[in-house]
């Protein structure tokens, strides 16, 4: 689904991403884990064309069409090719209502019936958002905003969902809710790239994972295996390895 080759990224003299390569298969949930400042968010932003200075080859390979060179697309065209990013810090439009935020997720969908149908489905699944549909998004709690941000991304019916730190700053109960939403998307066949600091959680829900350290991938494998890996245990799971 997503094929990244040799991605580089410079930020004012600092090299945040130093030539990484990875892929996300069709219907696969792949996690990108690592410490603060390892380059996880930068990688996602580069994929979403929010950092135009990034270089490398990024291709989208949809099952039902030709490969698309993401690096040649302007940011606002990504969503029309089925790529949706849920940004770090949620990025909901605080001064718009919950309903407006959701509708904006389907901004490029022409078919109004389809938009309404997706909206009804999502609100049915997320009663918390339904109750607050006419509230300004800025008045929601952090967890509700994260829920809204993910739901908004789902409004575009993405083929590839990029999730940036969805558990950040949330109460444990909300983290569970958010991950229910993510696993539901995974089970419905959406390909997902998940960037997450909470490595245990990320490894539990993902099929495969990459470990990012100082802008390089240092370890990769099946998530189940990585959960048992001593290096991962020591560095990211907070377990003491004897």
């Amino acid at each position: 689904m997503l094929e990244v080759r040799d991605l580089h990224l410079h930020y004012g003299g600092i090299q945040a991403v130093k030539g990484i390569s990875f892929s996300v298969g069709q219907g696969e949930l792949v996690a990108l884990i690592g410490a603060n400042g390892a380059g996880k968010t930068s990688t996602l932003k580069a994929l979403a064309r929010m950092l135009p200075q990034a270089t490398g080859r990024v291709h989208l390979n949809p099952v039902d069409g030709p490969a698309i060179d993401l690096m040649r697309l302007p940011a606002h065209e990504l969503v029309t090719h089925g790529v949706a990013l849920v940004p770090e810090g949620r990025g909901v439009f605080a001064r718009q209502t919950v309903l407006e935020n959701l509708k904006l997720g389907a901004f490029r969908v022409q078919d109004r019936h389809l938009v309404q149908q997706r909206l009804d489905e999502l609100l049915e699944r997320l009663p918390r958002l339904k109750e607050r549909a006419s509230q300004l998004a800025g008045t929601l709690s952090g967890g509700e905003q994260q829920m809204l941000a993910i739901a908004r991304a789902l409004m575009s019916a993405p083929k590839l969902l990029l999730l940036d730190e969805p558990s950040m700053g949330l109460a444990p109960i909300m983290v569970d809710r958010i991950f229910e939403l993510i696993t539901a998307a995974r089970d419905s066949g959406v390909s997902i790239l998940l960037v997450e600091q909470n490595a245990r959680l990320a490894l539990k829900v993902s099929h495969r994972a990459y470990v990012l350290e100082s802008g390089r991938i240092t370890l990769t494998g099946n998530s189940a295996d990585l959960l048992q890996d001593d290096r991962v245990k020591a560095a990211y799971l907070g377990e003491t390895v004897c």
């Binding site: 929010m50 940011a75 029309t80 904006l104 997720g105 901004f107």
Partner: peptide, 24 residues
């Protein structure tokens, strides 16, 4: 209108508006 909503979204956060497909 949808166009007006896109304008409001761009005013609030152009980078996120672009992610929604708004031609900023």
């Amino acid at each position: 209108t949808a166009m007006g909503q896109a304008m409001r979204a761009t005013a609030e956060n152009p980078a996120i508006a672009a992610l929604m497909g708004v031609p900023v």
